[in-house]
């Protein structure tokens, strides 16, 4: 199990691909552990899905290749919650509401608020409360 890794994926579904059980096959055929953070895939609309996949590197690569056989775009760097740095005033209001410390105060001196995208679980708490609209959801 030591060679298990986790990757965060963002999938983009064009209108036509929402009827297919892609995630089911990732689990069943590619032996991947799937943790879906947020999904909005509805008929007649384009959709997005943000998830963690855990498995061997080979299994993850094969899973990604499988997804790509559909008309689905896979992004390894895509994130569902974006912080616009020049909108952020670094007030720190969001920090206690962020459950995973993805948003945190850097240090006592600068009191800059840092955003670590890899820790974000897309709960959208910051999107709802940021007074300056600095955090937005891409879908």
């Amino acid at each position: 199990m030591s060679d298990m890794i986790t990757k965060k994926l963002m999938l983009y579904f064009p209108k036509c691909e929402c009827e297919k059980p892609i995630i089911y096959h990732l689990v069943k055929d590619h032996d991947l552990i799937v943790n879906i953070f947020r999904a909005k895939v509805t008929p007649e609309e384009e959709g997005h899905l943000v998830l963690d996949v855990t498995g061997t590197r080979e299994a993850i690569d094969a899973g990604i290749e499988f997804i790509k056989t559909f008309d689905v775009t896979v992004s390894l760097t895509g994130i569902g919650v974006v912080r616009e740095d020049d909108r952020c005033t670094h007030c720190g209001y969001c920090v206690p509401y962020c459950p995973t410390d993805a948003l945190r105060v850097a240090d006592d001196k600068t009191r800059e608020v840092l955003y670590d995208e890899t820790k974000c679980i897309e709960c959208l708490a910051c999107v709802r409360i940021c007074p300056f609209g600095a955090c937005t959801s891409t879908f």
Binding site: T89, H90, C91, G92, Y93, C94, V95, P96, Y97, V105, D108, T110, R111, E112, V113, P131
Partner: peptide, 25 residues
């Protein structure tokens, strides 16, 4: 307050700021 946590009647309370010390500085 700036430590991010205060004690109220022995209970820990998480603290956020609506003003920006970073911008003020």
């Amino acid at each position: 307050l700036r430590s991010g946590q205060i004690q109220i009647n022995g209970k820990k309370v998480e603290v956020g700021s609506l003003s920006s010390y970073h911008k003020a500085n």
